[in-house]
Structure formats: C-alpha cells, structure tokens
Design a protein around this nucleic acid. Structure first.
Lengths: 157, 157
DNA sequence: TTAAATGCAAATCGTTTGCATCTGT
DNA sequence: ACAGATGCAAACGATTTGCATTTAA
C-alpha cells in the first residue's frame, strides 16, 4: 500500500513534478474542501467563486490528470442522477456507496470484507486492481420506512 | 429472493401486464441472446438486423422500462469506454466485473462473500438493496504479464 | 376505442478537441 | 525560451423530448 494518504493533492502534484498553475491550485483545493460527490459542473461553479475566469475545459483536463495519477476517484452512483460522474479525493480505505433511489442521499459503507475480497480477486484471477468501484442502489433506512418489501415497485429508480 | 430467474424478459413483461409490441419483442430477444455488455447503440444495430425500422428513441425508452422493472442491469464499467452504459439481463447471482484498462476485456467474478456482504449492509444500515454494481478496474492477468507492479504507471486509465 | 407506444427530428447534457494565446519553470 | 497549460468556441457522442401518427388490448 503506497503512502500517499496524508499529503494534499497539491503536495502530490508538486512531488511528481507536475506544473502548478493558479487554476489547478484552486481546483485541487475545491475538490479537497468539498463535501464529496462533486460533479464536473459543480466543481466548475465552486471554483469560479474563487476565480471567475476558470474554464470548463480546464476543469475536465484537470480531472483527467488527477484520474491518471490516481489521486481522485470517479463514481457513477448507479446512474441516480443521469450521465454525470462524481469525483472525490482518494482515501486510504475503499468504500462502498449506498445510493437511495427515493431521497437521493449517498451513504458510505466500509467493511473489512472488502480487503479480503480484493485479495481473493488478485489471487484467483491474477488481476492487478487499480480501481474499485462499489455502488449499491435501493432504499435507505429512512425511505424504506421499516416495512416496505423488496422489488415490488414500478416507481423507484 | 424472488423467483424471476427462469422466465424470459418477454414472459416477465406479459406477466406484469405490459403492452407487447413488435419492437419490444425484438429488443427483448436481442438483449437476451446477446453475449452481454451491450450498449444502447449496439442494441439498436443488432435489433435493426431483424427489423430495419426500429428507432433509437424506442431503444432508450425500452431500456428505461426494463430498468424500472429491474429486469436488466446497467453498468458503467469504470468508464473504460467513455460515457456509454452497458446492459444485460439480470441473473440470479450478483457478479463483480473486472475491466482491464489495457485490453478492455471484461471478466466476471462471483463470490459467496458477496451475499454475506449484502446481508451485512441490510442488517447494519437498514438499506433495502435493489441494485448492486461492483466494478473493478486494473490489469488482467494477461496484461499485467506477471511482474508489473501496482500504481506506477501514468499511462493506464 | 383509447391509452399507450412509436418514429422522427430537434434539443439537451456531459464531455472533448483544435487552435491561438499565455505562463510556470 | 519553450514545453506545457489555458480559454474559447465549436464539435462530439450519448441520451431525451415534443409532437403527430400508429397500434395493442
């Protein structure tokens, strides 16, 4: 496990000799300070609060850069909100996302099972895992009330 | 576990009182006979071999219908091939997809851990699981050769 | 008969690209 | 100085929509 957990995105980029521009600095900070589940359009909007000039293309190019360096993760969130992808700074431990089809809330879930699973996959398949994306869709505890049964609705999703 | 595994998509729709059109019949068969990992454009192309008239809009509307009824699953495959989503008829057992960033191949992986995990999530979070989407990106055994180490490339993804 | 499904074409949404200009190192 | 980053606007690919017409039940 590489030790890139405590450094900021900015530090990571600097360390890797990547050129730091004002725009990148702002985007990195915005991602890091965000409350997670940021899509590209929101990132652009937030970044523009700090620098009105920042361009959409720069946002996408920075996202691509950070993906390549594996400093951020990209989520699809079982397509709850259409085609867009969501970003977040990579953390030490992999997490599973629970997306509620009714209220749209995203919960995180971590489990020691996950590490065992990754090991099992690597061992059995010889697969070098770079990205793990685990997404569950359904009804959260609030929205399922306490009695609703599974799989009977034509409404959800 | 509901017993909707052995019926065809057509039977499922009929059973639920959904109107069956020629186009739907063709689309359902195409999905079912396909070798998996079908995107909307491919589905349209394949369906058109049977009926040159089938329209793109109908394809998307049918996909949406089947998603709502939870008869198909939609995958993003860690975005390996850009924005499109992939479809497949739902099967009894949930599977994890291993997408190779180098050769693009998709492998399936099943594990008894998965069922335990789902149970754990339901129990601990009170979450009613409708969809499980598990995607792993990395290098398959062929592409990782046998010695390539993890996380050192700026190339992949 | 009629609510629902289709075809068509245009619109929309997220993302990418070519190119001239600017900037970090 | 110059490779690399940016802004802009246009292009792109996937998906959605409005509306007039057709069709399954």
């Amino acid at each position: 496990m590489p030790a890139l957990e405590r450094r900021s995105l900015l530090q990571e980029l600097t360390l890797r000799g990547v050129r730091i521009t004002d725009q990148r600095r702002i985007l990195l900070e915005t991602i890091q300070e965000s409350d997670r589940h940021l899509d590209a359009a929101t990132l652009l909007a937030l970044a523009r609060r700090r620098d009105r000039q920042i361009n959409r293309a720069t946002v996408y190019r920075t996202i691509e850069l950070l993906k390549k360096l594996r400093l951020i993760e990209e989520l699809d969130l079982v397509n709850v909100n259409g085609g867009k992808h969501y970003l977040e700074a990579k953390t030490t431990v992999d997490r599973l996302r629970l997306a509620c089809f009714k209220c749209g809330r995203i919960e995180d879930f971590t489990s020691p099972l996950l590490e065992r699973w990754k090991a099992e996959i690597s061992r059995l398949r010889g697969f070098q895992i770079q990205i793990v994306r685990l997404e569950v869709g359904g009804w959260c505890s609030k929205c399922s009330g306490g009695k609703d049964r599974n799989g009977s609705s034509d409404e959800a999703l």
